[in-house]
Amino acid sequence: MAHVIEIQHLQKQFGKFTALKDINLQLNEGEVLGFIGPNGAGKSTTIRTILGLIKPTAGQVQVFGQDAWQNAVTIHQQLAYVPGDVYLWPNLTGGQTIDLLLRMAKRTHNQRTDQLIQAFGLDVRKKNRTYSKGNRQKVALIAALAADVPLYIFDEPTSGLDPLNEMVFQQQVAQLKAQGRSILLSSHILSEVEKMGDQIAIIRQGEIIEAGSLAEMQHLTRNQVTVTTAKPMLELTQQAHVHQVHFKNQTKTSAEFLVADTAMNTVLSYLTQQQIQTLRTTPPTLEALFLRYYDTNQIKAGV
């Protein structure tokens, strides 16, 4: 499978400050890559090097097999981008801005543009100055989604959108994905990436700490189980692959714990013996994965 974006050992320094230490990242054709990390981890800086807005200090950034810095303009012909913080010329209206952005990418205002304006419910007659963050984001999203290109890059696209518009966005991304487009989606909202992403890369302090498919990643984590039983679960802690047991009462009939997928069967048969009354298992969230990573590292670091 061809790599739409391929980053190898990317480093970026601003003066003495190292923003990116060592970034390795691939976006495969037709896939959605969820790019997650906390604020200030280097997500936007990575995206800005992909777009050729800033020059790598070291390493390779290739988009469609071309160097991102050298061939920025050629690459831009085939991608659409929505920045994390959208700033628009205050004295233009939303409608004027959308038309301008489309034309600057040699595209035209067509039926799809109007559909998108309607779907997002944007009042295009208002001046950008009067728009909220979410509305400014909509302007950029509409201009980007109206483009017919193989690659879309969204930098925290829904941070200002309400849940309804967020859903509209997710539907649009699903459509693009169905059409075989490649999408880079950065976010610190993990559930968003989880819903849409095929591949996940986690960045922290300028380094990719984990990358892989969602299936691979989930393998690394554990289900959270909340259970109440009739008989006390005295032997629960001795069960294989059960972690972080926390009893909620003295009689040990109510508990919360983590268990790996592979051990679910044996643990469940034990719980059945104790006569299950209520049982809830939560699939692993990226939140848990993320927290787990931080926990282990902080423990290692002695924090």
Binding site: L92, T93, G95, H109, R125, K126
Partner: peptide, 11 residues
């Protein structure tokens, strides 16, 4: 309220 569309702006 401003213009809904723009003919003039192109670059």
């Amino acid at each position: 309220a401003g213009h809904q569309r723009s003919r003039f702006l192109r670059g």
